[in-house]
């Protein structure tokens, strides 16, 4: 085998002319992975007018920014973006490429992996570097791609042993963002864009994008409900409690699927990862995908009528009983204390 590269790349996503949080989180994680590999961290940015964004990546540990700028690339489009990134990966063979598991990341990453025949693992909840023995062969410093699977009943560690490039995607909020005290003296490498006909096969006609109104990630208190809340109306109780104690309402995937609450308030592996001061889980059984999104909360109160509900395994305060009765009682108890 040829000598493997020690480069870690992060595909940088833009959000309102800034770098998306998930990309900064991945740079922070990528810095650590690159150190374990004794390698370098590179940010890859495609778009237009990227100088400032490129410099920003040096604050989060990038040694170099690979920049592809052109007026035609102002907005994300599957065909040119995936083609450009595929060509860069093929030519330079990074050891690891990380993507945010966002609308854009989940559109571009599989195409690049397919084009370059790289392994890609979606929605990882942890990434580590480790020597691995697989099928009696030694593989030094592989990327361990850890994710819950099979409805959350197992946690799988995925590896890409025999390919030069290992790719993974990670949801926003899963990795911790940490800016360096002093930015690295990074280098900006500009790569020319040569358009092709296929780049224009899809055209954007219109785009409506609203600033996300819900900001679960920053909420100090979250009152979350699960399928056990029984109905959309009963979620009104959670809203009442949340308003009273200064929190946000959230839900498990089962509650979102049942239509009790909107998708942008979903906590868990395929939703948002949160670390509030207080997380109240009402009628949430606590599948691992849900727990992966909230188990680092400082304090967790779990309310469930099933004594064996897995949520009790991660909580600090266990209340056994029907959430629909206990939430109003909790509201009363809180109001009494304020008197």
């Amino acid at each position: 085998m040829n000598k493997l590269s020690h480069e870690v790349w992060v595909y940088i996503e833009k959000k309102n002319d800034n770098i998306a949080d998930v990309s900064l989180e991945l740079l922070s994680k990528g810095r650590k992975l690159a150190e374990k590999l004794n390698g370098t961290l590179k940010a890859v940015i495609i778009g237009d007018n990227l100088e400032e964004l490129a410099k920003q990546t040096f604050h989060y540990g990038a040694d170099e920014a690979l920049v592809v700028e052109h007026a035609d690339l102002k907005e994300y489009l599957t065909m040119p973006y995936s083609r450009i990134l595929s060509e860069l990966v093929k030519e330079r063979q990074p050891r690891i490429v990380l993507f945010g598991a966002t609308f854009v990341g989940r559109d571009i990453a599989p195409r690049v992996a397919s084009n370059t025949l790289s392994g890609l693992t979606a929605d990882c909840t942890d990434l580590q570097i480790s020597d691995v023995t697989y099928m009696k062969k030694e593989y030094p410093k592989l990327l361990l791609q850890i994710r819950p699977a099979f409805g959350g009943n197992i946690v799988a560690t995925i590896i890409t042993p025999d390919n030069p490039v290992q790719m993974a995607s990670v949801r926003e909020g899963v990795m911790e963002m940490s800016a360096l005290d002093k930015p690295l003296e990074g280098k900006i490498a500009k790569i020319p864009y040569v358009g092709e006909e296929i780049d224009k096969i899809i055209e954007i006609i219109d785009r409506h994008q609203e600033e996300c109104k819900v900001n679960l990630k920053c909420a100090p208190i979250i009152v979350a409900g699960g399928y056990g809340m029984g109905s959309k109306e009963n979620f009104g109780l959670l809203k009442k409690l949340a308003d009273l104690i200064g929190g946000e309402v959230a839900g498990s995937r089962a509650a979102v699927d049942a239509g009790f609450i909107e998708h942008e308030r979903q906590v868990g592996q395929t939703g948002v990862t949160v670390r509030p001061k207080l997380y109240i889980a009402a009628g949430i059984s606590g599948a691992i995908q849900h727990r992966a999104g909230m188990d680092e909360s400082s304090k967790i109160i779990a309310i469930n009528s099933d004594p064996d509900a897995p949520i009790f395994g991660v909580c600090h305060y266990k209340i056994l009983g029907d959430a629909i009765k206990i939430i109003p009682a909790l509201i009363e108890a809180y109001k009494n204390k304020l008197k």
């Binding site: 890609l120 361990l144 560690t157 890409t160 009790f312 395994g313 305060y317 056994l320």
Partner: peptide, 25 residues
């Protein structure tokens, strides 16, 4: 398939350290 399953751990439910609260006033 470039990706391989290296390890699978079944998620076994265990009781953590927590305080039980009576659902009373």
């Amino acid at each position: 398939s470039p990706t391989k399953v290296h390890k699978i751990e079944s998620v076994v439910l265990s009781a953590g350290d927590h305080v039980s609260i009576e659902p009373t006033k």
